[in-house]
């Protein structure tokens, strides 16, 4: 029997916009919220990079690989931090596990 692989994605009731889609500030930044009650949440720096990696959905390995590619680092260097952040995003309800 094949092992169940957890996939992560942005929750259905989330709206978000990144600085890149606005004016393109110097620091990667994403603003997100759960609809319709909020509150607004800010993800800066590597937090935003992980969010953008999560936008396409995927397993933890895939999210780590995408985040590493975006930030120009090795996957193993950031794996632990990515895992922690993804867990936090799931806990506050803006990301979900399938």
């Amino acid at each position: 029997m094949a092992a169940v692989v957890t996939r992560y994605r942005i929750a259905d009731d989330v709206a978000w916009v990144s600085e890149e889609e606005l004016d393109g500030g110097e620091t990667p930044t994403a603003y997100l919220t759960r609809l319709p009650k909020g509150p607004p949440i800010l993800l800066e720096g590597s937090g935003c990079v992980v969010w953008l990696a999560l936008a396409d959905g995927g397993t933890l390995d895939e999210v780590v690989t995408a985040a590493a590619a975006m930030s120009g680092t090795g996957p193993e260097e950031i794996r632990e931090d990515v895992e922690t952040l993804v867990d936090q995003l799931v806990i506050i309800g803006v990301a979900r596990e399938d």
Binding site: Y31, P39, L85
Partner: peptide, 19 residues
């Protein structure tokens, strides 16, 4: 890794998109 936090000070453009 940076913290995530409530963004009450989100810039106007971001706030308008979310609104």
């Amino acid at each position: 890794m940076d913290e995530h936090r409530e963004g009450r000070a989100a810039p106007i453009a971001a706030r308008v998109h979310l609104a």
